[in-house]
Design a protein around this nucleic acid. Structure first.
Lengths: 331, 331
DNA sequence: ACGGATGCTGCAAAGGATTGCAGTCGCCAC
DNA sequence: GTGGCGACTGCAATCCTTTGCAGCATCCGT
C-alpha cells in the first residue's frame, strides 16, 4: 500500500536508482532531476522501506538501550536522553529492562544485538567477562561503567564526592558515614574511593557502612547502622537510599539536619519533594544518554577498534544544597 | 558474517525452503528432516534475519510505545509492563517520549508508524480528530484514553473514586475538594465525574478547584485554593499533585491528616515515601502495559476492524490507606 | 574533427527469507 | 499394472532498496 521507490521513479520519469541517489547523495544528480524526484516523493509521501534498505546496507537504523530497571527514575531519565538524541539522527531506540537480573541481562543483550546496529548498556550488572564478550561481538557503549577498550560515559565520582565533602566539612562535620550500594556496582566502588580521598584531604574521618540495596528499603535498613557509627553526616549511595535514611531517622526521632546531615547522589525528582528536601550531588542524567548516543553513532561510522581509544566521556556532578544538610551538632 | 538460511540448508542437506518451513511450520516437514535442520540451526546459532523476513511478510515484529514523559513514574511503569510482555512474544519495543507536546506527538507517531506493526499510545495528548486519523492508517491501541472504534485499556475511574469517597465519608468527611488536572486530559474528566457521582450517592458535597498541571508544582499551586474551599479532605488528580499539596500544606502549618486529609491517585513509588505517606488509589500500571500488548497483538492477527469491537480492557483501582487520610476534624 | 574527460543516468545484481506451485516418491486400491 | 492420492521437498519468484559498472551525451582541448 505505501509508495515504493518504483512508484516515485515512475512519477518522476526516472529510474529507481536515480531516486535512491537523489535522496541519499543529492550532489550526484542533476538539480532539475532532483527537483522532479523530490516533488514526486512529496506527492506520494514516500518513505524508504527500512527493512529493504537494511537488507542491503546491513544497517538497521536502530539502536538498543538496556537498563536494569525502567521504574528507577535515574534510568528513566537516561532513557529519555537517549531517545531524544537518537530521534535527532532519525534512529529508533529499542528499550529493554532487565529487572536487575544479571543473568537475564546477558541473554537479552544477545537477542537484542541481532536487531540493532549497536547497544547502549546502562549500569550493566553483568560480570566483566560477559561484558567484554558482548563488546567483542557487537557495537557497545557503556554508561556508568567502564571496560577495557569499550567506549562509554561515566560520572566524575571523585569530583562529586569532593564537593559533598567540602560542603559538609565547612558545616563542621569531622566524621562522615558512607552507606554503600551493591558490591557488584561499579559506582559504589568509585564513589567510596572518591569519598575516602576527599575526607583524607580534609583530615576528616570515614565510617563505612555495609552494602545495601540501592533502594528506599536499602536506606531504611542502613539508617540504624549509620547512626551507630557516631558520624554527624551520612553520604548515601544514591538518593533513593538517602530518602530511605530520612524515613527511618524520622521514625526514630532523629532530627535531620539537627542531629545528622544526609547527602544523596543523583538528584532525582523525588529528592526535591522529600521532607526535609535532600541535599545531593546532581548528576546530568539525560546528558549521559545523549552523549552515549553520540559515542555509539561515532563507533558505527568508524568501526575501527583502534580509534575507539579516547572515546570516553566524563560528566561532572553539581552539589545541590537543600534542607537535609546543616551545621554539625555541638559535641 | 552471521549464518544465513542457506548455510543452514547446506549443512542440513536440504533446501532453504525446507529450513524455513521447519522453523515456521514444523508439522509440514518430515520429523527426521526437521531434526537435521534444528541440529544445523543449533550448531550455527542461526537466527533469521528480521529485515529479510519483514521485507516479504510485511511485518517487522516491532511495536512502538509513545508516552508523554518517560521521567514520569506512571509512564515508566507502563513502559516496563509493555516491554516485559512484548518480550514474551519475541516482539521488540520502540519507545518514544513526546515531552508532553501534543504537536510533536502527532509527527512522532506518524514517523514511528512506518517502522512498526502497531502502536501503543499511552495517555495521548493529541486531539480526537488527529487520534482517529492515526488509528485509521495504522494499528493502534490506546491506554488511558478512548476513541471510537479503537481498542484500548482504561481504568475504572468511577470505581476508584467510589472507594476513595467511601473511605473519606466513613472518616466523617462531608465536604470534599477535587483538584483537577489538565483540561485536555481524558482522565481528569472521568475522575471528576466519578467523584461527583460517588459524593452525591453519599450525600456529601463536592468543591472543584481549577485545573492544574499534573505535577508536584501543580499541587503546590493548588493547595491554597483547596484549603479555601473549606473542605476537610482533598482528592487530587494524581499522586504527584497530591505530594505537591502535602508540601504546601506543611509549609503553611496545616496538619495532614489532622486538619485536612489528602488522597491521591496512581500509587507511584514516591507516595509510600512521602511524609505523611499518601493514601491513594493504586492503579495497576504495568498491567495496563501488558494488556495493551495483548490487545495490539490480537489486532495484528486479525486486522478486521469489526472484530475490534469489545476489545477494550478495564482495570480496577485499589484504595491504599496510609497516613495522609484520617478522621474529619470536629467542626 | 577527434580523443578523452566529465557529468549524469540506467541496468542488473545483490541482500535473506517466504511461499505458491510443481515435482518426486512410495504406497494403496482397484 | 496403473491411476491416484498423500506426504514431502525443491524451484523460482518476490519483497524493496542500494550500488558497481557501463552507457550516453556533452563539451573541451588540440
Amino acid at each position: 500500500m505505501p509508495a515504493t521507490i518504483r512508484d516515485v521513479a515512475r512519477l518522476a520519469g526516472v529510474s529507481p536508482s536515480t531516486v535512491s541517489r537523489a535522496l541519499s547523495m543529492p550532489e550526484m544528480v542533476n538539480a532539475a532531476t532532483r527537483a522532479r524526484v523530490t516533488a514526486a516523493v512529496e506527492q506520494l509521501g514516500y518513505q524508504p522501506n527500512r527493512a529493504a534498505r537494511g537488507l542491503i546496507t546491513g544497517r538497521t537504523g536502530n539502536i538498543g538501550l538496556v537498563v536494569p530497571d525502567l521504574a528507577n527514575p535515574f534510568f528513566a531519565s537516561v532513557a529519555k536522553g537517549v531517545q531524544a538524541r537518537a530521534r535527532r539522527y532519525d534512529v529508533a531506540v529499542f528499550v529493554a529492562d532487565t529487572d536487575e537480573d544479571a543473568a537475564a541481562e546477558v541473554g537479552l543483550v544477545r537477542a537484542l544485538a541481532k536487531q540493532v546496529d549497536g547497544l547502549i548498556l546502562c549500569s550493566p550488572r553483568a560480570g566483566d567477562a560477559d561484558l567484554s564478550a558482548i563488546a567483542q561481538e557487537t557495537n557497545v557503549v557503556l554508561v556508568n561503567r567502564t571496560a577495557e577498550g569499550v567506549p562509554g560515559v561515566i560520572y566524575d565520582n571523585e569530583g562529586g564526592m569532593q564537593q559533598a565533602v567540602a560542603h559538609l566539612v565547612a558545616l563542621g562535620h569531622r566524621r562522615i558515614a558512607w552507606v554503600g550500594g551493591p558490591v557488584t556496582s561499579w559506582s559504589t566502588q568509585h564513589r567510596s574511593i572518591g569519598l575516602s580521598n576527599a575526607l583524607y584531604a580534609h583530615g576528616a574521618e570515614l565510617a563505612r557502612v555495609g552494602s545495601f540495596a540501592p533502594t528506599y528499603e536499602g536506606g531504611i535498613a542502613a539508617a540504624d547502622q549509620a547512626v551507630a557509627t557516631g558520624a554527624t553526616a551520612v553520604v548515601a549511595y544514591n538518593d533513593l537510599v538517602a530518602i530511605g535514611l530520612l524515613a527511618r531517622l524520622h521514625a526514630r526521632g532523629i532530627s535531620v539536619p539537627g542531629d545528622l546531615s544526609v547527602v544523596g547522589i543523583d538528584d532525582i525528582a523525588m529528592s526535591r519533594m522529600a521532607r526535609p528536601s535532600l541535599t545531593t550531588v546532581r548528576l546530568p542524567k539525560q546528558e549521559a544518554g545523549r552523549i552515549a548516543v553520540e559515542l555509539l553513532l561515532a563507533v558505527l561510522d568508524d568501526p575501527d577498534p583502534d580509534s575507539a581509544v579516547g572515546t570516553r566521556g566524563t560528566l561532572h556532578g553539581e552539589l545541590i544544597v537543600r534542607e537535609s544538610s546543616g551545621p554539625a551538632p555541638h559535641a
